[in-house]
Simulated scan of single mutants.
Amino acid sequence: MGISHHDVHVLDRFIKPFGSSVFVLILATTSALIGIYLSQRGCDWTWFSRFGSVITVAGLLLVSSPVFDQGVYLSHASAFGFASRDEHGKSRITDETSRKTGNKVLIGIAVSICGTLIWGFGDLIGKLGIC
């Protein structure tokens, strides 16, 4: 059984890759390496700082992964589900998919924090005499 065309946003196929942990981590790592390379080459660590902003955006993309994974319209559809019981009879609201999404959001927050620190303080590496 497929998804109704009413539940599919026109941009869903373009935004879904941004919900991938691997894609976002590669984007963040590549941005950091390019920033380090340009800073080292030109002996100007403001480049590293500038690429920190790209890393921050990468982290924010991963934090937004529920929108990217499910699609724009379906991103919060699971919020309307019902709780079930676990093997001990306790209420369980999440499922495996929502727990995986939660882990990606946590990684995205960490990437955003690293990117923001680089963005704010990355140029100070030049003050250490590293060139």
Rank of each mutant, 00 (worst) to 15 (best):
F14V: 05
I15A: 04
K16N: 01
K16W: 05
F18H: 01
F18V: 03
G19K: 12
G19Q: 12
G19E: 10
S20I: 09
S20P: 13
S21T: 15
S21E: 15
V22P: 07
F23Y: 15
F23D: 12
V24N: 15
L25T: 14
L27Y: 12
T30H: 07
A32R: 06
A32N: 13
L33A: 12
L33C: 11
I34E: 14
G35A: 07
I36N: 11
I36R: 05
I36M: 10
Y37A: 07
Q40T: 01
R41H: 04
R41I: 04
C43T: 00
C43K: 11
D44T: 11
D44C: 07
T46N: 12
T46V: 06
W47Q: 13
S49W: 08
F51Y: 15
F51V: 05
G52M: 14
G52T: 12
S53D: 12
S53L: 13
V54Y: 12
I55G: 04
I55N: 04
V57D: 08
V57N: 09
A58E: 15
A58M: 12
L62P: 04
V63Q: 14
V63G: 03
V63R: 08
S65Y: 09
S65T: 08
P66N: 02
P66L: 06
V67M: 08
V67F: 06
F68L: 01
F68R: 03
F68N: 02
Q70T: 00
G71M: 05
V72A: 07
Y73A: 02
S75R: 00
H76N: 07
H76F: 03
S78V: 07
S78F: 03
A79D: 08
A79W: 03
A79P: 05
G81P: 01
G81T: 08
G81L: 00
F82C: 00
A83M: 02
S84C: 07
D86G: 09
E87Y: 05
H88N: 06
H88F: 03
G89C: 02
K90G: 03
K90I: 01
S91C: 00
S91H: 02
R92L: 08
T94E: 09
E96S: 11
E96K: 06
T97F: 09
T97V: 12
T97E: 14
S98F: 05
N103Q: 14
N103L: 12
N103V: 13
K104A: 02
V105A: 11
L106D: 11
L106H: 11
S112A: 15
G115K: 10
